[in-house]
């Protein structure tokens, strides 16, 4: 039940991004959530309208990308999808695995409305 805390933190970050880019409004917000993040996407979606009300994002949609749990076995190197409470290697059964994805709780991107259009242009493109 900490989804409201998470939502408020999300909106605070989105507001900072909007101010930095001189945005009139936020059109959409994309986040990535993995099953091991500890937050429930459905609860987050239901809490979100409360958090966005009266902010620069008050008409912005929230798009939640569900990411799968993937692990890599440190013993045999096999990569596979896994269930939240069964993170062992599906090939050799060893429990020494490393989580590749599935614990994300990430603000991925924000679509902004600005007076002079979006800040993106090929010249400014940077790939991390």
């Amino acid at each position: 039940m900490h989804e409201l805390s998470v939502c408020r933190s999300l909106i605070a970050q989105v507001e900072a991004v909007a101010i930095q880019h001189g945005a009139r409004a936020v059109r959409s917000i994309r986040i990535c959530v993995g099953p091991l993040s500890g937050i429930d996407p459905d609860l987050l979606q239901r809490t979100y309208p409360l958090a966005r009300a009266g902010t620069v994002a008050d008409t912005a949609g929230l798009i939640i990308e569900h990411l799968p749990i993937r692990v890599r076995c440190e013993r045999c190197g096999f990569e596979s999808e896994a269930a939240p409470n069964r993170l062992i290697c599906t090939r050799c059964g060893d429990w020494h695995t490393r989580l590749l994805s599935g614990d994300e709780m990430l603000l991925a991107s924000v679509e902004l409305e600005t007076d002079d259009g979006l800040p993106a242009s090929p010249d400014q493109a940077r790939i991390f």
């Binding site: 880019h21 959409s28 937050i39 603000l107 991107s109 679509e111 993106a120």
Partner: peptide, 9 residues
Amino acid sequence: AVTVLRGLL
């Protein structure tokens, strides 16, 4: 979209 790449917390 402006890519942010920040944790929600």
